[in-house]
Simulated assay, not measured.
Amino acid sequence: MELLSIGEAAKRLGVHPNRLRAWEKQGLIRPVRLPSGQRRYPVEEINRILGTGGIKAESDAVVLYARESTKKQADAGNLERQMERLRVYAREKGYCVVAEYSDVASGLNQPSGIGTGA
């Protein structure tokens, strides 16, 4: 039985290693645990997923956020182009976009700390 590391398995499936961990918790994929506790994925398990067209888990909900540093950049359409690239990426990856946010502000002019509550 050929076993793949989590990185190798994720690459073959075209997903992030965290997705494999989530699928394991949901019982959608069954890795083999080594005595060290590391996961190894049987090639047969990867082929099973690829052969069925992938795992149909809950849709991944995402929020899109685009930011420009100056109003001049936003007025030039940079903000909208950035948001459109995010939309395309989300669509290609099968994400469900639940909200979109954009911001025009310079980090130099913002108060320190994360989040403004706006």
Rank of each mutant, 00 (worst) to 15 (best):
K71F: 09
R21H: 13
Y65N: 04
Q38P: 04
P111S: 05
L20W: 07
P42K: 03
R19M: 14
L20A: 05
E2I: 03
I114V: 06
K25L: 14
S5V: 00
Y95N: 09
G94T: 09
R39W: 04
Y89P: 00
R33V: 14
L28S: 08
A66V: 06
Y89Q: 11
P31V: 05
M1Y: 01
I55L: 12
G117K: 04
V62M: 11
I6T: 14
P42V: 05
D60G: 07
R48K: 15
R33P: 10
V98E: 04
C96W: 06
R12A: 05
N109Y: 07
E24W: 01
R19K: 14
E8W: 00
R19N: 12
Q73C: 08
Q110C: 06
Y65C: 05
L3V: 02
V104I: 15
S5Y: 01
E8T: 01
P31L: 00
A9L: 04
L20Y: 06
V104T: 15
K71P: 14
V32W: 03
A74Q: 12
R48Q: 08
V32S: 06
I46Y: 00
A10W: 02
A9V: 03
A76D: 15
H16Y: 11
G53D: 08
Q82V: 08
D103A: 02
A9W: 00
Q110T: 05
R40A: 14
R33S: 13
D103L: 11
D103E: 15
M83D: 04
A74R: 14
W23N: 06
P42T: 08
K56N: 11
N18L: 15
I29W: 04
Y41T: 11
R48E: 06
G37I: 11
A76R: 14
L3T: 01
G77C: 13
A10I: 03
T52S: 14
A105Y: 07
A105S: 09
A61C: 12
E45P: 09
E44S: 14
E24L: 06
V15E: 08
R33Q: 14
G37V: 09
E45D: 11
I55N: 07
G51Y: 05
E92T: 05
Q82D: 08
E2C: 00
A10M: 07
G14H: 04
I46H: 01
Y41I: 10
N18F: 07
E84S: 13
I49R: 03
S106R: 06
K11F: 01
V97D: 04
Q82P: 01
S69F: 09
A9D: 05
G53S: 12
W23L: 13
G107S: 08
G94C: 10
N78C: 11
S5N: 01
S112I: 02
G77S: 10
A57S: 15
L4S: 01
V32T: 09
P17R: 03
Y95F: 15
Q82T: 12
G94H: 13
S59T: 13
S106M: 04
S106G: 08
R30K: 15
Y101I: 05
A66T: 06
A22H: 11
E80I: 13
R12L: 10
R67S: 09
E44W: 02
G117W: 02
G94D: 10
V43K: 00
T116G: 12
R21G: 08
